[in-house]
Amino acid sequence: MSADESSSSGLRPPASGLPSPASGLPSPASVLRTPASDTVALRCANIHRYLGTGEGRVHVLRGVSFEAHRGQVEAVVGPSGCGKSTLLYLLGLLDRQEEGDIWINGRLMSNSSDAERTAARGANIGFVFQFHFLMQEFTSLENVMMPMRKLGRLAESEMHDRATQLLAAVGLGDKTHRLGSQLSGGEQQRVAIARALANAPAIILADEPTGNLDQRNSGIVFDLLTRLAKENGQAVILVTHNPEIANRCDAVRPMRDGVFV
């Protein structure tokens, strides 16, 4: 991506602290990257996960292995209950697997502490969920600034500028001061995308980001997510039921009964 393209998308690299990978400067995630896995942002091997207890215990993931590359959008598809979302939460370090390993930017996170996993999430992973999960008491701008405030790499004015740029990039430049509760479902999801991109993470994990939207908004949200992620060289893993959306991704990984088929 050229600098012009970046400007045309409305998302310029931040002034300091959080350079986008596309800007040619090292991203926060690249600091942890090993040479051997330069294009691999995320890798997992032989992941097993059980849910429930006693007789209701279900073997949800049965030895899943997977790689996500920078600048690629990968779709994970499959019927409900096949383990797509469970895999996504494991990859996002929101849950712990019973067996198997996960590397984020070449760093093994399987046995890391809760604090290390939390820090890795803040710096390297952006989430977009089906049910937007915006903070309703905060404005769009504040929602986007929230992960940046936690990471604390930018000054307040820089955070403000970057959040404004991100909201402009998702087409909400005129609604920066609207509360979450004052936005439509599609708008809320676009704010959620801007928020996921706020810290310029190496990985974007999206759990049915268009599942709660109409067809028009689904197209807008998907286009935005993939375009911004590609422009910034981020790996996108997208769980979806929508075959139309899945077919527009760089790779589709069908899943059934806890394994890729």
Binding site: L94, D114, A119, I125, M146, K150
Partner: peptide, 16 residues
């Protein structure tokens, strides 16, 4: 609970 979960996903620690 949802907001707490999303904050945790953003990097907010248990202590936060």
């Amino acid at each position: 609970t949802k907001e707490i979960a999303i904050l945790r996903s953003m990097g907010y620690t248990r202590r936060d």
